[in-house]
């Protein structure tokens, strides 16, 4: 079943074309990796999908509903969760409170003024933390969390809105290799379990080729290749510009 349809998505900043007629579809249960050299337009793509930027042209529909021109808030409500490259959890709150805030937002209770936050969705928040494996830091302020734990909290935060589509911007950046694999395996399990679709930007090729169902390669804002890991691995063009067959290339 097709969840997300992107057609002719374009965005330019002045003279530079950041995203150039990008189009793809995504089905529920699918894990799509978005790769490409720095400046290829990956994060811009995400910003266009979740409404932080408005595309110059193109269509984006989530289960037939157009997302173009909607605010990030509205798009989140329609079921698009996002994690950020630099973890952006609410630093002054504990991991548990972070989740409670998101749950309150999800249930449209953020404007309650009397009952203490402590009593709202605490069990749900804990369950989510437990699901991503960081229940033990529930009472720690996010500003003081270890990086790996914070990345998992990020994931839980994105899940708390019950999304159908997850946009994950470098979910494993800055983590130890073993932790990376574990986190992506967890994401993969969640995607299956909840029938979500996930798009993730990733630079670790072991992670990408080990876990993605499909890979899209972006270069200079254009799609260079779109296919299974095996197909992408064998794509000569991709190998030439991206996968670092020439030493000192732009690959990571």
């Amino acid at each position: 079943m097709t969840l997300l349809v992107v057609e002719g998505l374009s965005k330019r900043f002045g003279a530079m074309v950041a995203v150039d007629r990008v189009g793809f579809t995504l089905a529920a249960g699918e894990m799509l990796a978005l790769i490409g050299p720095n400046g290829a337009g990956k994060t811009t793509c995400f910003n266009l999908l979740n409404g932080q930027l408005r595309p110059d042209a193109g269509r984006v529909t989530l289960e037939g509903v157009s997302l173009v021109g909607l605010t990030p808030r509205r798009i989140w409500r329609l079921g698009v969760g996002r994690t950020f490259q630099v973890p952006a959890a609410f630093a002054s709150m504990t991991a548990c409170e972070n989740l409670q805030v998101v749950l309150l937002s999800h249930h449209r209770r953020a404007f309650r003024v009397w009952r203490s936050t402590r009593s709202w969705y605490a069990a749900d928040a804990l369950a989510l933390l437990e699901r991503v494996g960081v229940a033990h830091v529930a009472d720690q302020r996010c500003g003081t969390l270890a990086y790996g734990d914070l990345k998992r909290v990020e994931l839980a935060l994105a899940l708390a809105g019950r999304p159908r589509l997850l946009l994950m911007d470098e979910p494993t950046a800055g983590m130890a290799p073993a932790d990376r694999q574990a986190l992506i395996a967890l994401t993969r399990a969640l995607v299956r379990e909840r029938g979500l679709a996930a798009v993730f930007i990733e630079h670790d090729m072991d992670v990408v080729f080990g876990h993605a169902d499909r890979i899209i390669v972006l270069d200079h804002g254009r799609i260079l290749a779109d296919g299974s890991p095996a197909a992408v691995r064998d794509d000569a063009q991709v190998r030439a510009v991206y996968l670092g067959t020439s030493p000192g290339g732009r690959g990571q």
Binding site: S105, A110, S116, T117
Partner: peptide
């Protein structure tokens, strides 16, 4: 004091800590 501890206070603090993230989780 009560308000600060209630959801409204938390949502406001969320906007303070990271406006970007707050908007991305549906907070106005």
């Amino acid at each position: 004091r009560r308000l600060v501890a209630a959801p409204f206070g938390y949502a406001l603090r969320a906007s303070r800590d990271s406006a970007l993230r707050a908007a991305a989780v549906g907070l106005p």
